[in-house]
Design a protein around this nucleic acid. Structure first.
Length: 111
DNA sequence: TTGCTGACCGACG
DNA sequence: CCGTCGGCCAGCA
């Protein structure tokens, strides 16, 4: 909020606020930002988060179906799953188990 | 500058 | 059930 009000910074900010052991979806973040249609940009922002200096737990962000769609972008298809499992989140068939229960809605929790 | 692409989502046929 | 299309924004050739 101080600097760089770019879309990316906005996304990072929300993603960083995701509690431990929780997950959210691209669409939810986009919707929270007021750009429901730009869910793609959320994923794109995650791609930029690869810069290395950002504390963005992108592994907590999955698609609407709870599928680990971006697992390949973590440097390996297993990294994302392992990270989630290390937080107590169970993964089955590349999907988050009890996704609905673990789902963290920014526009609901942050509102 | 134009145009394509991208870790999505929802709607339509 | 499955394929296709539109929409949104930003980065890159």
């Amino acid at each position: 909020m101080t600097n760089k009000d770019s879309f990316f910074e906005n996304v990072y900010e929300v993603v960083r606020k995701i509690p431990f052991g929780r997950v959210t979806s691209y669409g939810a973040i986009a919707e929270y930002l007021g750009t429901r249609g730009s869910a793609r940009m959320v994923g794109w922002a995650m791609n930029a988060s690869h810069n290395g200096l950002l504390n963005v737990p992108a592994h907590r962000v999955v698609n609407r179906a709870g599928l680990l769609t971006g697992k390949h972008h973590f440097g390996g298809p297993r990294v994302m799953q392992q990270l989630l499992e290390s937080e107590g989140i169970k993964i089955k068939d590349d999907a988050v188990v009890s996704f609905v229960s673990l789902f963290w809605d920014p526009k609901k929790e942050l509102a």
